[in-house]
Every structure is written in C-alpha cells, then in structure tokens.
C-alpha cells in the first residue's frame, strides 16, 4: 500500500486493515508520521475543553438596536434588493434613452455631431459673408460672390437642396 493512502486511512480514523497495519510496521516514515499526527490530534481534541466565552447580557438587544440604526441596506434584505434593482433598471433606461436621442437626432439640428457641425458652421459663415458682399455690405461685385455662396449653401444644406 502507498504511504499516502495509509496515512489518510489512519488520519480519517478508519479501521486499520491488516494491510494497513503491516505497512505501518514496516515503514518507519509512516510510523513516525502517524505518531506525530496522533500527538497533534490529541492536542487539538484537548482544545475542545477550552470553553468559548458566553454572550454578554443584553447581546441580542444591542444587536437589534444596531440593526435598527443601521443604514437602509441592513434594514430589509428583499426590499433593499428591490430598491437597488429598480434603480439599476431606471438608470439603464435613462442611458438607453439618451443614446437613442443622440443617434436619432438629425445632424443639422442643435445636437449635431461636432465634426460635421463645425464644417457646416464654417460654410454657413462663408455663405453669410458672401451674402453680405452681394448685398453690398463690403462693396464687392455680386456675381462671383453669389455663385460661390450658392455652391457653399448647396454644400452646406444638401437637405434643403434635396427637399426642393
């Protein structure tokens, strides 16, 4: 029999079969190991005599008072879970709604994405300036300015062009 199996058998307090007994008698390592383990086990068993302390008077009352004063998560187990669960659901819905709004809104609207909006804004500014020139604000000839402004306007407002 293998040493480990023999030692386990004895440690577990199982009956020492003849094979186990023969092995222990013939194996000095197992003999020594088991002698030491049995000493330690006697010590551990002796520790059972060491009586644990008794709960002090009023232990339960103090505990109940502590529960009373504890934060809400200690108050009611299932209600706490219910509250947290509801908050998680509401928070998830809010986030989903906000995402949907961001994705669904048109790019020309007030919440347009910054990349497109900046170029549109610049082009609109250019168109505005060009219009001012056409209307004689800067004293520039109207023809060329109008053409370029129309192009810009066309680029800037593809939807407007399309909607026509």
């Amino acid at each position: 029999m293998r040493c480990d199996a023999v030692r386990k058998t004895v440690e577990d307090g199982m009956a020492r079969t003849p094979a186990v007994q023969v092995h222990i008698e013939s194996c000095s390592g197992c003999k020594e190991y088991l002698r030491k383990w049995e000493t330690l086990q006697s010590g551990l068993v002796a520790m059972r005599d060491d009586e644990p302390p008794e709960p002090s008077i009023g232990f339960t009352i103090r505990l109940m008072r502590r529960l009373e004063n504890a934060s809400p998560e200690f108050q009611f187990g299932p209600q706490f879970i219910d509250q947290i669960g509801r908050r998680v659901v509401y928070a998830t819905l809010m986030v989903a709604l906000m995402l949907a709004m961001i994705l669904a809104l048109p790019s020309s609207g007030p919440f347009r994405s910054s990349g497109i909006s900046e170029s549109v804004f610049v082009q609109t500014q250019v168109a505005t300036l060009a219009n001012e020139q056409v209307l004689g604000v800067d004293g520039v000839e109207s023809g060329d300015a109008r053409d370029s402004s129309a192009d810009s306007a066309g680029k800037a407002t593809p939807q407007a062009r399309g909607s026509k």
Partner: peptide
C-alpha cells in the same frame, strides 16, 4: 493535555 493542547 495542557502541553499538547498548547502546542496544537
């Protein structure tokens, strides 16, 4: 018992 208990 005291001695081995102490050791353990």
């Amino acid at each position: 018992k005291l001695a081995v208990g102490d050791l353990a």
